[in-house]
Amino acid sequence: MDLHIFIQQLVNGLVLGSVYGLIAIGYTMVYGIIGMINFAHGDVYMVSAYLSAIAIALLSIFGIASAPFIIFVVLIFTIIITSCYGWTIERVAYRPLRGSTRLAPLISAIGMSLFLQNYVQLSQGASTQGVPNLIKGNLRIGEGNDFVQITYAQGFIVISAIFGMLILNFIIQKTSMGRQCRATQQDRTMAGLLGINTDRIISTVFVLGSAMAALAGVLVTLNYGTFDFYIGFITGVKAFTAAVLGGIGSLPGAILGGIVLGMSESLFSGFINTDYKDVFAFCLLVLILIFRPSGILGKPEVEKV
């Protein structure tokens, strides 16, 4: 086992994991507040990848070539429009079903996911799309053939993911809005009795989750450069796995779960087999759920008597 390959895979895993973590935040927040799995969340991420490509195309029409400026505008544009998607999905597909059985919004979420995939396929075409590489260059540590390579794009992903998570954590822990979110999560009826408009808080949670997915979408598009209408499915399932792994409903758990999943996946594909990396990821999930059903950081549910 070569050390430099090991470190290289850890770096790749960290990059992959921070993307999973960002998307997992959306799953875990929605689950925490209304107890449903938003299966359309992976497709929100896919939509954001297309939106970032559209933004890059629009900017190039106006002849803007400065990479930092493009990245900045693309981030703002994508986050805002994707948040609107998140808000609309909640308003159209989930709110009318509030108060019905637990399964109803789940089915509605699957429908929403299929709708988004087909809507993007029809409007943007089924073929794989690409964007030019905006962040060029890399950092090499080591000499000769034994080196660890970190592209600037990878560095950018990790730094912006950490930054995004810090902002979100600040919103949840320190602002009045975040306090209302936490109150609604713990006891929705009581929050309503204290004058909190719980419907608005739930919308806010969808908006925040979608904004994080949008950040992930832009970062992945900038790094890999290609995407199609189907990327939301597998990434969504992986991110959901990360959320369950870390303990669904827990925000730090989602991030930790994402990083654990990303690192173990990339170590497995680096040293054992690339084709079976998904199998390994889900085996890990099964094992953790057997030995720790509430996830790494999740609290076991205590039945009140």
Binding site: I167, I171, S176, M177, R179, Q180, A183, A191, G195, T204
Partner: peptide
């Protein structure tokens, strides 16, 4: 914090102002 939750109507509600 329990008491602050109850007073959210008198707190500045704008998310940006909070951030």
């Amino acid at each position: 914090e329990n008491l602050l939750v109850a007073q959210h109507m008198s707190l500045e509600k704008s998310l940006l102002k909070g951030v």
